[in-house]
């Protein structure tokens, strides 16, 4: 093996140099890691909710008495209620919490979070600055009552088993678009296995196309 041969460009063209695959993989693997692991971490900012709220405790009749409702939906609606004009109140205001948690000096449960809630918000009559997981862009109009009451769709269908969780998930917002991760879906690939995994226009349209007979496919039904 002479150096002469090695340096002959004509030769090297014929004979692939060793380690070609290695370099290919050296490019491929990090990019996969970047794409699948790092990118999602960079893309989304993370914010913890101001305080934790346990849906499961509140939904458990053995622990919390007074969340009325025969069905699960009714129980959800007890706090996430429809207003008189049919609009949806969304995340309850402090006034709803203080229907039960009315005394800032006496906690109803034992958790530290409740104490924090009482001292920081109830005592000061300050609204809790919740992050909303499901806020849609301004161009979107959504009527909960049309879906829940008239369409008889479960809360779960879009929101998942939120009512059974003990801890509020960390709120993640897309740094580019500003929208919550729950809109595009937690799966970075955009795959969804459950109906509640994603909330993009296609996901709405999927259902609306199926139920087109009911005639709710005009643009302005979802856009304002």
């Amino acid at each position: 093996m002479g150096l002469m041969h090695m340096k002959n460009p004509a030769n090297s063209r014929k004979k692939p140099s060793k380690g070609g695959l290695f370099f290919f993989l050296a490019g491929l693997i990090p990019s996969l890691i970047i794409g699948w692991v790092i990118y999602p971490m960079v893309l989304y900012s993370k914010q913890a909710q101001p305080i934790n709220f346990s849906h499961s405790i509140h939904m458990n009749p053995e622990i919390v008495d007074g969340i009325e409702g025969d069905t699960e939906i009714e129980k959800c609606l007890y706090c996430h209620e429809f207003r008189e004009d049919g609009t949806f109140a969304g995340i309850p205001k402090l006034a709803k919490c203080t229907e039960c948690h009315d005394d800032p000096d006496s906690a109803l449960g034992e958790s530290e979070e409740e104490k924090k809630f009482l001292s920081k918000y109830v005592a000061n009559e300050k609204e809790i600055p919740w992050y909303s997981y499901y806020r849609q862009p301004d161009c979107v109009y959504f009527s909960h009552i049309a879906h829940v009451k008239m369409g008889e769709i479960n809360c779960k269908t879009c929101h998942g088993d939120h009512g059974k969780t003990d801890k509020l998930p960390v709120y993640q917002a897309n740094r580019l678009t500003g929208y919550s991760i729950n809109i595009w879906g937690r799966n970075i690939a955009g795959y969804k296995t459950n109906t509640w995994d994603r909330m993009k226009m296609d996901d709405c349209a999927e259902c609306h196309t199926l139920k087109e007979k009911e005639g709710n496919n005009a643009c302005f039904v979802c856009h304002k």
Binding site: F23, G27, W36
Partner: peptide, 16 residues
């Protein structure tokens, strides 16, 4: 160049 191609190809198989 191979590494770049690998990287570029790899990215196609990521959601990025």
């Amino acid at each position: 160049v191979k590494m770049l191609i690998g990287g570029a190809a790899g990215l196609q198989f990521t959601p990025l």
